[in-house]
Design a protein around this nucleic acid. Structure first.
Lengths: 159, 159
DNA sequence: TATTGTTATACTCTATAACTATA
DNA sequence: TATAGTTATAGAGTATAACAATA
């Protein structure tokens, strides 16, 4: 007689499945966490990119984040309507805008960062500090080994 | 003077971001791997569930996998059109169907499983056997700690 | 001729409700 | 009255192509 197939329970032993299951859940959870601030994944990514290098053009942001430039228009529209960025003239290229964070955005950024930290604490609550470090290192090695760009989320580009 | 914000590069230090980045990438990769077999995430999930317990009703499958019963219709339609399952009369309930794997499906399942193993080897190629075990255990603990059902992928239900 | 930003359109997916036949 | 399965419709989200202004 043949033993029964493990079925979906067997997926719990597969590293790719565990990563996929956890990753998608966490991505959804992060969306929920940002919702009260009126920020979505794409607007969050643009705000974060500008926090390190303010005044980038929409093209630069699109290339950096893997978002199509057509889609970037709506993202910047949204941020501008919320008063979080301004489209200012670009010094070297009159076709382009320099996108700049407003003071309101600079006040908001720490709160968004706090959500990221809170999420990390929640997710790793059952791990020791050593285990967190070990997990972080393993994930970084896998991510780098797969050739992924640090900090660039593949869902921003969309299929 | 203030030092520049780490921007998106700082996300590379965050466990939730790494999990989300890797997980979404891996989920997309798995879709690509299954494509040549004409199988998608939802049909794969149903085939896997039936491999452990054949003859389940659409309602049972929907509840088990987190797919809405309305959406389950199209999934079973697809599988039936491919000759991978049959809708057979349900022994106890004339409203319901017992969904049963065909011989063709039983021949296909090992190939799908092989793709899962191949993906795991590819993703963990840069890790030692010990490190793979450590990673698997850490992920299982995090997944269980978050109350996720083993083997149930949150993307099947869709937003 | 190529590029930045923009707009419009078509396409895909999903969520919701309503229907039938049985229980 | 509730449930299994089905169908239809509307809505959100995305990709594609084409456009004007500037390089």
């Amino acid at each position: 007689m043949t033993e029964p197939s493990p079925g979906i329970a067997g997926l719990h032993q597969r590293i790719p499945f565990l990563l996929s299951q956890l990753g998608v859940h966490i991505a959804d959870d992060f969306v929920v966490r940002l919702e009260p601030f009126g920020v979505g994944p794409r607007t969050f990514a643009v705000l974060t990119a500008l926090s390190a290098d303010d005044g980038q053009s929409q093209r630069q942001l699109a290339t950096l984040l893997g978002i199509h430039r057509n889609a970037m228009v709506a993202v910047v529209d949204k941020l501008e309507s919320q008063g979080l960025v301004k489209r200012t003239p670009h010094a070297q290229d009159r076709r382009a805008f320099a996108i700049r964070l407003t003071d309101k955005a600079r006040e908001l950024l720490p709160a968004l960062d706090a959500q990221g930290r809170l999420q990390e604490e929640t997710i790793t609550a059952m791990l020791t500090g050593q285990e967190r470090d070990a997990l972080r290192h393993l994930l970084q090695r896998v991510s780098t080994g797969l050739g992924m760009s640090p900090g660039v989320h593949p869902r921003l580009a969309e299929r």
